[in-house]
Design a protein around this nucleic acid. Structure first.
Lengths: 216, 216
DNA sequence: ATTATCTATAGATCTATAGATAATGC
DNA sequence: ATTATCTATAGATCTATAGATAATGC
């Protein structure tokens, strides 16, 4: 019993340091990008010496890959939970999904900018990001198109392309949370705080999507 | 006369080298970001020795600022041309503006990602970007809100917040062109080429915006 | 005489590793 | 005996500059 406890403690302790580094690395990579990130800063953030980072992950690039893997694994899981209650009417189902997606985007406003910048600045290095994103979206798209077609045939909504609708939802949600830091600096003063902004924006987007679905 | 010509030639020649470096720098900075950009690569792209770059611009950061200044100056000018014909009905005027904005965004798909990444990764360095963007948007916003209010009072459209509408247009347009490289890799095969994609997407966005403005 | 260009190199910064030392669990 | 941690430093890379040389215009 005592032995088991000790083992767990050791395991946890190792986990902690490694996890500390991963957390620090995520923060550093997501704000500064791969090129701007410094392994020394990451070590400092994590409260370990610089050598430890190489002990656990060997290279900056391997650490980067681990961060990406972990991060997008999380996102994929959260995305899966978006699939709304099938008993809802189609319009409500989609609007509900759009709102859920807004919340996911709002939880991680730095992720899209990071993603886009990495793929743009170094396509070879970011193969993993592309694969992860591909995996996430393909499922959603096929599922959504089937639902839309059925509902359109029943005359509940107008005929609509799932790819376009998805692009609309993703664009509106992601971009909104993405550029809030700008807006707040540009429109200083006459802009509500982030919480109020989000509530209003989410409602506005939901309404925009609803209007898209309606038959004229 | 001959002297003048020679002077101009010299001037042009100087302009050329300097301009060559600026063009090369823009390409490098916009794809790789400040941190990923290499002054050596820029010199190579421009076909000059590395020292020349420092001769003309002293530091990497000053070169970066010149690029930003030039680039956003161009964008500001193009934006100013968006203001649509005031004789058009309000809905057509806005939809026309949205389409024009789509074209601007499509002409420079790397710019938004660059902008966002730079401001996120190094806010101090990118003060100039923020100032330029602020200057561009403030005018547009005030002008648009006035037009919307007048039209709403005349019962031509529903009452709508200019900031929300602007955000919708910018989000949809910018994000669409921004992530095309992804989409083409994710949905390989069953996606049209860029030109077809743009035409369809632009029409879809215009329709989305139109539906937003209509009274129910 | 001034401006433009090149070569060579200093100096700073960053990643990565070697090798020593401490902690842990058998 | 193995795993974790630290110190010190090598080696690579990148920006910036000094100083020499060539081109240009008066």
């Amino acid at each position: 019993m005592l032995i088991k406890e000790k083992r767990e403690m050791k395991y946890e302790k190792k986990q902690n340091k490694e996890q500390d580094i991963l957390i620090a690395a995520e923060e550093e990579f997501l704000t500064k990008g791969y090129d701007g990130a410094r392994t020394t800063s990451i070590a400092q953030r994590a409260g370990v010496t610089h050598a430890m980072l190489h002990y656990y992950f060997r290279t900056k690039e391997q650490l980067f890959n681990r961060v990406v893997e972990q991060k997008f694994g999380m996102v994929a899981m959260t995305m899966a939970s978006v699939i709304a209650d099938l008993s809802l009417p189609i319009v409500e189902r989609i609007v509900h999904g759009a709102r859920a997606h807004f919340d996911i985007a709002a939880k991680d406003p730095k992720l899209p900018a990071f993603m886009i910048h990495e793929i743009l600045s170094n396509p070879e290095r970011s193969t993993m990001i592309r694969e992860k994103v591909k995996w996430i979206t393909l499922n959603v798209h096929q599922n959504l198109q089937a639902q839309l077609d059925m509902a359109a045939n029943r005359g509940e909504i107008r005929k609509i392309d799932a790819a376009e609708l998805l692009l609309d939802i993703i664009s509106l949600n992601v971009f909104s949370v993405l550029i809030y830091p700008f807006i707040s600096q540009i429109a200083d003063g006459f802009l509500p705080n982030y919480e109020d902004f989000k509530v209003k924006r989410k409602a506005e987007i939901a309404d925009t999507i609803r209007r898209k679905l309606l038959i004229q």
